[in-house]
Write a protein that binds this DNA or RNA. Structure first.
Lengths: 185, 185
DNA sequence: AATTTATGTCAGCCATATTGACATATTTTG
DNA sequence: CAAAATATGTCAATATGGCTGACATAAATT
């Protein structure tokens, strides 16, 4: 299980009588198969939502990731973005250049440190970022609507607990900071 | 936000005083930013676990996905796998061939329909699939351990609700069927 | 017998990632 | 101040995992 592409239907199974070729099954009883697979399918659908919109701009998911985090963290450094995305600067380079060239992101020289190229979403970039987030929010709110109250908090707690322990605080701080950044405006 | 690569630390933010280039923020108040980003980071760490193991076999996430579903659904048809992964047979071909050539998966002619090449994990393949699932299960169980009882059920409900409505039943059936398949052995 | 289905394969292309080397400007340090 | 470190960018080559289109084969269905 890893990242995924997009949607697909679960096909009818042939459930034939053939036995598995392997021998040793039984002690995988405790494996959390349900969560592993639900996470796979849920995430697949979740990231699939924006794809149609991105297609119209000839953008891929790489662009989405960059735009999302830049929009959420106005003035972030290139190095910070690289750390969040965990890609090389060469990989970021191409995608970022396209976003800048097409006016979705601007880079401004750092005030204290003029080597830095701080990243900002333009109005155009923010509009796209919000459109994409709205699609995903729609799915999330639909889910919370189906589940009872408290579902949001439960999901937040579950997802937080799934993050690497040594990184969790940083993530929470980052989310809180971004919230502030985007709320004050 | 979309699929991701692997781990990375959240860097300190420069939180500079620069204002965003865009103008319109404020009505994104209802966007579920927290869930969007938590899902991103949680999934990133979740799929990152197996990467180190896969590296030793010179396998990628594509191999993991194939091996996972074949192991969970012994005797599945190639066409079913294509539908679950939502890739083309040409894409599957390369990865599947490597798994077959290296003895992780075997293909058997269908009994009723001899055109079919039913897929089975070998003992070797199952061992690897279980090893990878164990890593992910470890993370999941750690999370459920931190949260109280009922966390498993809550997570299951949340993730299920996040799946496309028209696909949800199929996913649940698929998971249940796989559980049966691997339990009877 | 003709058609459809399940699968495989060849060939070429694209997006996104990688490593390594090197360049430039700026800040920090000895 | 000179040297070293840092932030960023860029060139080139390469790998992975997707894609489309075309075509092939065997077996099932009509």
């Amino acid at each position: 299980m890893a990242d995924i592409n997009s949607n697909a239907k679960i096909p009818p199974q042939n459930s034939g009588g053939e036995a598995t070729a392997g021998g040793a099954q039984a002690r995988d009883a405790e494996a959390a198969w349900d969560i592993i697979e639900l996470l796979f399918f849920a995430y697949r659908d979740f990231v699939g939502d924006p794809d149609a919109v991105l297609l119209k701009y000839a953008f891929g998911r790489a662009h989405h990731r960059v735009l999302h985090f830049v929009n959420r963290n106005p003035g972030m450094k290139v190095a910070d973005l690289l750390d969040i995305l965990n890609i090389t600067k060469q990989s970021l380079g191409r995608v970022l250049k396209q976003l800048v060239d097409q006016g979705f992101i601007v880079q401004k020289e750092g005030a204290q440190d003029r080597r830095q190229r701080l990243l900002f979403a333009t109005a155009k970039g923010e509009a796209l970022a919000l459109k994409l987030a709205a699609l995903q929010t729609e799915r999330i709110n639909r889910a919370f609507g189906e589940l009872g109250p408290g579902a949001h908090e439960a999901a937040r707690r579950f997802l937080t607990a799934m993050i690497d322990g040594d990184n969790r605080e940083g993530v929470l701080r980052q989310i809180a900071r971004a919230d502030r950044a985007k709320t004050r405006g």
